[in-house]
């Protein structure tokens, strides 16, 4: 029962991440795309954590942590990359 609820939640969030891909494709600015990629990355972290709980595989939580870290570094790096003198934080 709990596994089912967690799995259905993960599936719904995955479907919403696919919907968000619309903004990645459409743009129009680079920053719109980064915001959308950031949302997809956060959704991926949540999906990995939900699947870890549903399948009772606690090792997946490590992967979720690393993915969250990479997602953050990617957003900051690309945000810095789009500005000339790079002062974004």
């Amino acid at each position: 029962m709990i596994d089912g609820a967690l799995m259905y939640g993960a599936a719904a969030i995955a479907a919403l991440a696919v919907v968000v891909m619309y903004r990645v494709v459409k743009g129009p600015t680079m920053q719109d795309r980064i915001v959308a990629i950031n949302v997809i990355g956060t959704s991926t972290v949540v999906i990995i954590a939900l699947v870890a709980a549903a399948l009772d595989q606690p090792e997946y939580l490590d992967i979720a942590l690393v993915y969250a870290l990479l997602n953050f570094v990617l957003s900051i790096a690309v945000a810095k990359f789009t500005v000339d003198r790079g002062e974004v934080l």
């Binding site: 920053q31 956060t42 945000a79 810095k80 500005v83 974004v88 934080l89």
Partner: peptide, 11 residues
């Protein structure tokens, strides 16, 4: 997550 959104908005 909010830090990244702030950085992107500022960029």
């Amino acid at each position: 997550s909010p830090t990244a959104a702030h950085a992107i908005s500022r960029a």
